[in-house]
């Protein structure tokens, strides 16, 4: 334990409104804490800069999964375990269910939240690739009201987000319009469980006969933030997966990925490895479309 806990404050206002009021009154002073699976690690190693924390862990207003005709709305305080146990998500958003299942361990899934995973804004985070591919939107709330932005516009840079100091992430909304799409997700981590991604790719494709009518790809650890790979999508849209064309399509996809990916060398892997393995995962997906 490398922090002196007596130097930290933590309060738990009873309602969401009270939390928002406090954030608005002293913008930037308080850091929200939900499941604590990131911030408590920072505390343990002596690197938690924020001295005043505001608990949102207990706010029932943030912990829900609501399904309507077009979308599934997930409260930011929903845990990975909640997501794994939800039948609607398992059916409609299998990529999100998979990514929740391999986030940390069971104990961490019981505490960690979807909102926390997004706001912590690690480029290696597990759920963003699926959410990016699904075209999620995020609803941000403050005392001034709410605003909804496409999730693709949320991550601005390394650990930088569109969240203002007085705002909280409230809801993640994911369209349920992927019936009939080919869906594929794969994480390459340091081991089979309790692992941080070296890279991960979430892929969705809609075929029109043997033509890729639409394709959406989200990636982890290929850039300074979770990445929606619009370049690869543009390169592949309209291409054919017919036997005679497949190799050219695969080449086009790999080339586009090599161009778009800007992975780094770090303690877990190398940029070269990440690039090529992500390309292999993309190729694996493209070839699977033929089957």
């Amino acid at each position: 334990m490398r922090s002196d806990v007596t130097q930290y404050e933590l309060t738990a206002p009873t309602t969401l409104a009270a939390v928002l009021a406090q954030l608005a009154a002293e913008p930037g002073k308080h850091t929200p804490i939900a499941g604590g699976t990131e911030l408590m690690v920072a505390l343990g190693v002596g690197r938690l800069a924020a001295k005043s924390l505001l608990s949102i862990n207990h706010l029932k207003e943030l912990r829900f999964i609501r399904v309507d005709d077009d979308a599934i709305h997930i409260g930011a305080g929903t845990t990975f375990t909640d997501i794994r146990r939800n039948a609607d998500i398992a059916r409609d958003l299998p990529l999100l269910a998979s990514s929740a299942s391999w986030t940390g361990s069971v104990a961490n899934q019981n505490r960690g939240t979807l909102g926390g995973n997004i706001c912590n804004a690690s480029p290696a985070a597990d759920t963003p690739p699926a959410l990016l591919a699904y075209g999620a939107t995020v609803t941000l709330i403050s005392t001034n009201g709410t605003r909804t932005v496409p999730y693709t516009e949320f991550h601005l840079g390394y650990k930088r987000t569109a969240l203002r100091p007085d705002e909280l992430l409230h809801t993640i909304t994911v369209p349920r319009t992927f019936a009939g799409w080919k869906q594929h997700i794969r994480k390459v981590g340091t081991r089979n469980a309790q692992a941080i991604s070296k890279t991960a790719l979430a892929c969705l494709a809609k075929l029109d006969g043997e033509t890729i009518a639409e394709i959406r790809i989200g990636a982890a650890s290929l850039a300074d933030r979770p990445l929606r790979c619009t370049g690869i999508e543009a390169a592949l849209t309209g291409l054919s997966i017919a036997k005679a064309d497949l190799e050219a399509t695969v080449r086009a996809g790999r080339a586009a990925l090599a161009f778009e990916a800007k992975p780094i060398d770090d303690i877990r892997s190398t940029g070269r490895y990440r690039s090529i393995v992500a390309a292999n995962l993309l190729e694996e997906f493209l070839r699977s479309l033929v089957l």
């Binding site: 340091t190 081991r191 309790q194 303690i267």
Partner: peptide, 23 residues
């Protein structure tokens, strides 16, 4: 063990990778 100038850089269980029950 990742070394840099003689210092172990991955001196945490999260980045020194020992096998779990799933491995």
């Amino acid at each position: 063990c990742e070394w840099k100038e003689g210092r172990m850089m991955n001196n945490q269980m999260t980045n020194y990778i020992m096998p779990t029950s799933a491995d």
